[in-house]
Amino acid sequence: MSEGPQDAKAAAPQARTATGHAETAGEHVDERQLGPQEEYGTQGAPFERRSPFYLGFFGALGALLAYFLWSAIMGIGSTLILIVVSLFLAAGLNPSVEALERRGLRRSWAVTAVITAFLAAVALFVVAIVPVITDQVTAITKSAPEWLEQLQKNRQIQKLDDEYDIISKIQDYVANGDFVSGIFGGVLGVGLKILGALFNAFIILVLTLYFLSSLEKTKQAFYRLAPASRRSRVALLGDQIIRNVGGYVSGAFIVALCAGISTLVFLFIVGLGQYAVALAFVVALLDVIPMIGATLGAVVVTAIATATDIKTGIFCAIFFLIYQQVENYLIYPRVMSKSVDLPGAVIVIAALIGAGLLGVVGALLAIPTAAAIMLILREVVVRRQDAR
């Protein structure tokens, strides 16, 4: 008769005991007859994941990993800024490529045409405009001491100068070149800053052209990271965000161009033609900065015009006061209506946060970023809440 289950269970300890006696006695035991638990011991209970040691160890390990990643990101922060700026510029040039595609041109040829036009514009600016700006900036620097002397005729300024000797200090500071040296850290610092700016401009130019030529492939690569069930919706939202960014970049360029051309024409009319190109370029460049850019440009031009002639300064103040109202209520809404549809409070808050995080670059990128966040909130979060 065969043994029952109870007899087998009772025989198992005896077999293990016999095995142990056999090994003690020096007899050979076949290891294949032993199970894994008998060979290495019985497996214990799993480690308690709620224990303080477990939580503390892996929590500290995660914190160290996060700190390492944050340090790495901060170390390449300047490179990341160049990449982000290049992406925004590529998105700004993409509407021109799409416009050529709608006219029947292949994307490769459309990208080539836009890149050629962009490089031609940059080369024309460097060859034709930069020497004029350099000459006019030099003329402004040479005339600055004379303008400071004229300020001494003002009674209030003369009182301040008698007490604190302000005018003479500023005059010596500008005339001796300490102004430039103080900003850039001496002659060597000036050279290094110029080389650094040219290198960054070259990197941005190369990355912009690369991102523009491979924008479609880059988008598709990012879209494939989304689940297949949501990929089409992610692609639609992503394309809309890119269109918003491109519309904002091109719109900001148009607004700044209008400001620069208007300032150039006005300065020639009021008799400041010797400084018109340089000052108009400063106004156009500063006008790209949200909120405060146009005001800073107006202050710079008005101050220089006032130093040359009081009446010209008054005319400049009136002109910029009127032009900023036209730009804020007529030009900017018409240009930006299709790309950035944000409340005024959101624009101000986004610009302040961006400027606080990344300075001028952050202020430039804040508004399209806020528009993208608002689009995601409206199309994803709000719709999900409405469906409940």
Rank of each mutant, 00 (worst) to 15 (best):
A11D: 13
A11R: 14
A12G: 03
A12H: 08
A12R: 11
P13R: 12
P13V: 11
Q14E: 12
Q14Y: 05
Q14H: 06
Q14P: 00
A15Y: 02
A15W: 03
R16L: 10
R16C: 00
T17Y: 05
T17L: 06
T17K: 09
A18H: 07
A18L: 11
A18S: 12
G20I: 09
G20E: 11
G20N: 10
G20T: 05
H21Y: 03
H21L: 12
H21V: 03
A22M: 15
A22C: 05
A22Q: 13
A22L: 15
A22Y: 06
E23I: 13
E23F: 03
E23V: 12
T24Y: 08
T24G: 05
T24Q: 14
A25I: 01
A25G: 08
A25C: 04
G26L: 06
G26V: 02
G26Y: 05
E27K: 13
E27N: 14
V29N: 09
D30Q: 05
E31K: 12
R32T: 15
R32V: 07
Q33M: 14
G35D: 15
G35K: 12
G35L: 12
G35P: 04
P36Q: 13
P36W: 10
P36R: 09
P36S: 12
P36L: 14
P36F: 13
Q37V: 12
E38M: 09
E38W: 07
E38T: 15
G41A: 10
G41H: 11
G41I: 09
G41N: 10
G41P: 10
T42K: 10
T42W: 14
Q43N: 06
Q43S: 09
G44S: 13
A45E: 08
A45Y: 08
A45L: 10
P46F: 05
P46K: 04
P46S: 05
P46Q: 08
P46Y: 07
F47P: 00
F47K: 07
F47G: 02
E48H: 05
E48R: 06
E48I: 00
E48M: 01
E48C: 02
R49A: 06
R50H: 05
S51K: 01
S51R: 06
S51V: 00
S51L: 03
S51T: 07
S51P: 01
P52Q: 06
P52W: 06
F53I: 08
Y54N: 09
Y54P: 00
L55K: 13
L55R: 14
L55N: 10
G56V: 00
G56E: 07
G56K: 08
F57W: 13
F57N: 01
F58S: 10
A60D: 01
A60E: 10
L61G: 01
L61N: 01
L61E: 04
G62D: 07
L64P: 00
L64H: 02
L64R: 08
L65Q: 03
A66D: 04
A66Q: 06
A66E: 02
A66T: 14
Y67I: 02
Y67K: 05
F68P: 00
L69D: 02
L69Y: 06
W70L: 15
W70F: 12
S71Y: 02
A72S: 11
A72N: 03
A72P: 00
I73F: 07
I73W: 00
M74E: 05
M74D: 03
M74A: 08
G75T: 04
